[in-house]
Amino acid sequence: MRSRLAEALLIAAASTILFAGLASPAGAEDPAIGNCTWCHGGGAQGYLPAPRLAGQQRAYLRAQLERFRMHGRDAPASIQFMWAAAENLSDGRMRALTDYLAALDTKPAMDGNPALEGRGRDIYQNGVADENIVACVACHGPHATGVGAIPRLDGLSHSYLVRRLTDWQNGYNRAGATPMPHIAGNLSPDQIDALSSYLSNTRYAGAAR
């Protein structure tokens, strides 16, 4: 509950900053990169409620920016921040931005509940066949590094992972996200907590594919 409130306050604070950033004159600093740091942090390691972008799969970043531009991602935080942020990105600048972000080194958020890691790992690696819950590993890979348009998940923050999965459950972001809306729909709140704890406390040291 407290984290929800903190998140709401941050959203309010960040939106003021974001639009201040957008209004600043172009030229002094590359505006496409400058704006991102207000919410995602100077090293793109993420900052509540904005996810880490550093080291993310470049094709995934590109596809998501495209989806923000096309308004296919329609969760409240996306509408509030990312629609405007992605609106004026040219294709060339988007490529430069995603190339830059994908090459940055990552830090794990480490904000999950360590007691739930084992259960989360089991769901991630094996799924829950009795409940028709698929194993995340099939698409996101053994170290959760993703591939191509499939995102890297290791070390993303617990709160962000929980929010993305529950956004799908609540009917947001359904366009162009197959099969995740369906997969998320099968997960219980406890399973989401466990999975997010495992992922946020994990860091793959090798290079992502």
């Binding site: 698929v134 099939a138 698409c139 890979g141 191509g148 197959t178």
Partner: peptide, 24 residues
């Protein structure tokens, strides 16, 4: 019906296969 939906989550909506981290 639930099981078919479960299979097609990874193997593609028409069972045509899918490229995740591994080719499915």
């Amino acid at each position: 019906a639930a099981k078919v939906h479960y299979c097609t989550t990874c193997h593609g909506v028409s069972g045509q296969g899918f490229r995740g981290f591994y080719p499915i």
